[in-house]
Structures are given as C-alpha cells and as structure tokens.
Amino acid sequence: MTRTALLDSILKEMIDRKTENVVCYHIAPKSSIADYMVIGTATSEPHVNAIAEYVLEKMKENGTRPFAVEGQGRSRWICLDFGEVMVHLMCRDERQYYNLESIWGGCDKVEIPYE
C-alpha cells in the first residue's frame, strides 16, 4: 500500500510533537470520508491543542489547508480533516471511551516509520 506525501508529513509532525500511540488505517476501501484515518493520543488538553496547532502550521507551510477543523481551542479531542487524511487527536480518557479503533480496526493498518 502506498502512502501519500501528505500522510507522511502529518505523521512526522505528530511524532515530532510527542503524540503517543499513533495509529493509521487505510479506510478508503470501506469509507468515502477519507483515504486514511490517523488517531493519536495527547497527554493533556494543552498538548492536544499544541499538536493540532503544529500540524496545521506545518501543513500551511507546505501549501495544504484543512477542509475542516473541529474542537480547536479548549478541547480534549480535535479532528483535522485534510480530505484524503482525517486526523483525530485525543486525550487518553476520550480515546478509550470513544474507541475509534473498534470502528476502523478492521481496515489495513499503515506502518508508521517515524516511531
């Protein structure tokens, strides 16, 4: 499975900002909302927001803007929609409670080379 440059860049920026437990699923065969779903855990609300700000800033520098951003500001879960890549940044409790892996876990997992 071939990864895109956008996905690689997003994954690298998330790892650079100490995002924990990053997983990526190739969801295109099962969903039309995106090609890839990335889920990562932050240690706190400020960490969630810092990761999101950093990823958005780095993508903007590369000429990529998100289609939508949900939860930015004071939030423990932020979703960044880059079209082909959907990113969910969550605190531990939210990640355990909503368990997005139970929805997308049946999809092919993408290896993350930066960890």
Rank of each mutant, 00 (worst) to 15 (best):
M1W: 08
T2E: 15
R3L: 02
R3K: 14
R3P: 00
T4H: 04
T4M: 00
A5P: 05
A5E: 13
A5G: 03
L6S: 11
L7K: 09
D8M: 09
D8L: 08
E13K: 09
M14D: 01
M14T: 01
D16S: 07
R17M: 14
R17P: 04
R17D: 07
K18L: 09
K18I: 06
E20P: 03
C24P: 02
C24Q: 01
Y25A: 00
Y25H: 01
Y25G: 00
H26L: 15
H26R: 05
I27N: 01
I27Y: 02
A28W: 03
A28R: 15
P29N: 09
K30I: 12
K30P: 04
S32G: 05
S32H: 12
A34F: 10
D35H: 10
D35N: 12
Y36W: 15
V38R: 04
G40H: 03
G40T: 03
A42Q: 12
T43D: 11
T43W: 13
S44V: 13
E45Q: 15
E45D: 08
P46T: 14
V48Y: 08
V48P: 11
N49D: 14
I51P: 03
E53W: 07
E53K: 14
V55E: 02
V55C: 05
L56I: 06
K58L: 02
K58D: 12
E61G: 02
N62K: 15
T64A: 12
R65W: 06
F67K: 14
F67Q: 11
V69C: 04
V69I: 12
V69W: 04
E70L: 07
G71S: 09
G71E: 09
G73Y: 04
R74M: 08
R74W: 05
S75M: 11
W77D: 06
I78L: 01
I78M: 02
C79H: 10
C79T: 15
L80N: 13
D81Y: 05
F82K: 00
F82V: 00
V85S: 08
M86F: 11
V87T: 14
V87F: 06
H88F: 06
L89M: 07
L89V: 15
M90R: 10
M90L: 15
R92N: 13
D93Y: 09
E94T: 10
R95S: 12
R95C: 13
Q96Y: 11
Q96C: 02
Y97G: 03
N99Y: 03
L100M: 11
L100H: 01
E101A: 03
S102R: 14
S102P: 07
I103V: 14
G105Q: 00
G105E: 01
G106V: 00
C107T: 00
C107Y: 00
D108A: 09
D108N: 10
D108L: 01
V110E: 03
I112K: 07
P113D: 07
P113F: 07
P113R: 07
P113Y: 12
Y114N: 05
E115P: 05
E115S: 08
E115I: 13
E115N: 09
